[in-house]
């Protein structure tokens, strides 16, 4: 794919080019978001646009973690597409364990006001015992699931800090991959957690209603496109032009 990057990098001199490559590798492979102060390729909007275009080649996008640091993640439409592919989705057991960690380490502390609203990282570990009890997985399966989730950076193991008051007995928290969610993905995850934790709550009803109306709007838009494409096909014998025009509306 080096050749795939070539059209994007060709116009830069050697120094700028290596800055862009470093920025690309950093956002793709660093554990945490990287500060733009350290990576010249992330400092200016113009070079960020090039890094973004490099990421786009494999369905990725730049994600701003805070005012001055950056990471990367899958674009929303690409993530949705990958999620439809069974080979790309982790096994149900792994997902169940991850959901338990999110409920214990994020949802519960957030509901209690101990965690800010828009973060998926947490200092509150989910104890292994809790995972064993709630997941109802045999211990061997639970351990394999945790191994895979840790390797994928989806959970991080926190060691007990040795305090005797039991405030921090160690366990698992959401891993560094949660930096890589786009704003829309963070919102979707938040909604899913509400639907799972309080399916009968008024908030869950609002989310379902909003999703239904969005779905309806998408279907209507698709139907409109289809009708106008048919009409255009009859009138002009040229479907694609009309299609493109409709897309632009």
């Amino acid at each position: 794919m080096s050749e795939a990057f070539e059209p994007l990098l060709r116009s830069y001199d050697e120094r700028r080019r290596s800055e862009l490559v470093a920025a690309y590798m950093a956002v793709e492979h660093a554990a945490e978001p990287v500060p733009e102060a350290r990576f010249a390729g992330l400092r200016e909007p113009a070079s960020r646009r090039t890094v973004e275009a490099m990421l786009n080649l494999s369905g990725r996008t730049l994600i701003r973690a805070d005012r001055t640091s950056w990471t990367s993640g899958y674009r929303d439409e690409v993530a949705a597409e990958l999620a439809r592919d069974p080979a790309c989705v982790p096994p149900a057991g792994d997902r169940a364990v991850l959901a338990l960690v999110l409920i214990h380490s994020v949802a519960i502390p957030r509901a209690a006001g101990r965690l800010p609203d828009d973060t998926w990282l947490s200092p509150h570990p989910t104890p292994l015992e809790e995972l064993r009890r709630r997941s109802q997985l045999p211990i061997g399966e639970l351990e394999s699931a945790l191994r895979r989730l840790r390797l994928a950076g989806l959970v991080t193991q926190v060691r007990a800090d040795g305090r005797t008051d039991g405030a921090d007995a160690g366990g698992f928290v959401p891993g560094p991959q949660f930096h890589r969610l786009t704003p829309a993905a963070r919102r979707r995850l938040q909604e899913e957690l509400i639907l799972a934790a309080g399916p009968d709550s008024p908030l869950a009803a609002t989310i379902r209603a909003r999703r239904r109306s969005r779905e309806r709007a998408e279907q209507e838009a698709a139907a409109r496109r289809e009708t106008s494409a048919e009409r255009a096909g009859v009138e002009q014998g040229d479907v694609s032009t009309q299609d493109v025009r409709e897309e632009g509306l």
């Binding site: 990098l9 690309y24 950093a26 660093a30 990287v34 990576f39």
Partner: peptide, 24 residues
């Protein structure tokens, strides 16, 4: 496997004092 630009590898992060994904 994913391809990287200009022969770079994730080892490049070391030059920038940046930690890669941690491995237990």
């Amino acid at each position: 496997l994913s391809a990287w630009p200009d022969g770079a590898t994730p080892a490049l992060l070391e030059e920038y004092d940046t930690a890669p994904m941690p491995l237990d």
